[in-house]
């Protein structure tokens, strides 16, 4: 089954997901009217209005908070061999009534939590959707895959000969942009086209870089994969983002 939400390995963006999103909504416009069309319009309006919250990093030399953009993130990763400490896996206090195994994504702070018993959670650093591609809602894990196949979208195949090579699907492996594991997010029984997956660009954790995919370090997605079961609730929080819920 073709994947349609995969990240662009060259541009660090989930262009495939964008295509999937457009296809999804064009399908809605073609096939349905009434509340679905209205919902799609609300979604589109929300997307246009969404302003992502960026990450800042403290520079002890200048004693100033500075923008943590892709260039800065790459430089940091080259210098330290890892992302900033805050984005590394950690068990934290998490006061919630949600049951253990629930996934909570704080897109503004670039954290993903999986709820543990006794008011604790495992916290992971994540990369999320870039401007206009962030989303919020309540979905569930519809299925999971180890070493998922990545199929580049048609427009990527058309412009990139390297991608064309994988038009029929790139087998799972260390060079696969989805990394070693993927959790497929569904709304009810319907594929939302969004996924939580690994990455070949570990420096991008903490940034708004995708078209809606949630990306983790490869070690982290493997850890998360073991902790989360199919059917688990996934709550995505992102200030000002379009609501997926109800669409």
């Amino acid at each position: 089954m073709p994947e349609h939400d995969m990240p662009d390995p060259d541009s660090a963006k989930c262009n495939g997901q964008r295509r999937g999103l457009l296809r999804f909504f064009s399908g809605i416009f073609r096939a349905r009217t009434g509340r679905y069309t209205l919902a799609a319009l609300v979604f589109a309006a929300g997307s246009a209005a969404a302003i992502n919250i960026n990450t800042q990093i403290y520079n002890p030399e200048t004693r100033q908070w500075e923008q943590y953009d892709p260039n800065r993130a790459i430089r940091y990763f080259q210098q330290h061999g890892q992302t900033p400490a805050a984005f590394q896996r950690k068990i934290v206090t998490f006061r919630t009534a949600e049951k253990p195994g629930t996934v909570v994504i704080d897109g503004d702070k670039h954290f993903l939590y999986v709820v543990l018993p006794n008011f604790q959670a495992v916290r992971y650093g994540i990369g999320v959707g870039r401007e206009g591609f962030g989303w919020a809602g309540i979905v569930n894990v519809g299925r999971k895959a180890e070493w998922p196949v990545w199929t580049p979208p048609a427009e990527m195949v058309a412009r990139d000969p390297k991608a064309a090579k994988y038009a029929g699907g790139m087998p799972g492996g260390p060079d696969n942009p989805l990394g070693p594991r993927a959790l497929y997010l569904y709304e009810g029984n319907k594929d939302s086209i969004y996924r939580i997956h690994g990455t070949t660009e570990p420096w991008s954790i903490g940034l708004n870089v995708s078209s809606g995919c949630i990306r983790l370090h490869n070690d982290d997605i493997v850890d998360l994969y073991e902790r989360v079961e199919v059917g688990a609730k996934v709550i995505v929080l992102m200030q000002g983002a379009a609501l997926y819920k109800g669409v």
């Binding site: 403290y58 002890p60 400490a85």
Partner: peptide, 11 residues
């Protein structure tokens, strides 16, 4: 001052 290279959200 934050310790080391701390990060935070802009908002």
């Amino acid at each position: 001052a934050p310790q080391g290279m701390a990060v935070r959200s802009a908002v």
